[in-house]
């Protein structure tokens, strides 16, 4: 059985910021987007729709690869690196 993606992320160190570093303009998702790319491209499987059908991202587990940012054509994401001492910290890679 493959390791669950959550378990993989559990191996990494994440230093949590108080503010999210990714904010989705869900209006854009619901009106302009044709492919929901973020759902498929994120290597950490962090995007999902909530009960009301709004796109959400579990930014706390973000690997900061930028793939969602690059693949979101309608530019619904305001995406920045976490500041200061925050975000993922790799110990090997």
């Amino acid at each position: 059985m493959p390791m669950k993606i959550d378990a993989k992320l559990g191996l990494d160190v994440f230093k949590l910021d108080k503010e999210p570093h990714i904010v989705i303009d869900t209006e854009v998702c619901n009106t302009v987007c044709t492919d929901d790319a973020c759902l498929y491209v994120c290597p950490a499987d962090l995007y999902e729709r909530d009960d009301q059908g709004r796109m959400t991202v579990n930014w706390e587990g973000c690997l900061e690869c930028g793939t969602c940012l690059i693949c979101c054509d309608p530019r619904a994401l305001s995406w920045k690196y976490p500041g200061g001492p925050y975000g993922v910290q790799y110990r090997m890679s």
Binding site: P2, K8, L11, Y40, V41, C42, A44, R91, M92
Partner: peptide, 30 residues
């Protein structure tokens, strides 16, 4: 979904013996 490719790859009969007994220590992307 992108992240599934590696899991499926690792499950291939020709790859499984290469990683057998190993312990995953970190997961990263860029």
């Amino acid at each position: 979904e992108s992240w599934q490719l590696l899991d499926e790859f690792k499950e291939l009969p020709q790859i499984r013996p290469l990683v057998a007994g190993g312990t995953v220590a970190e997961y990263s992307a860029h």
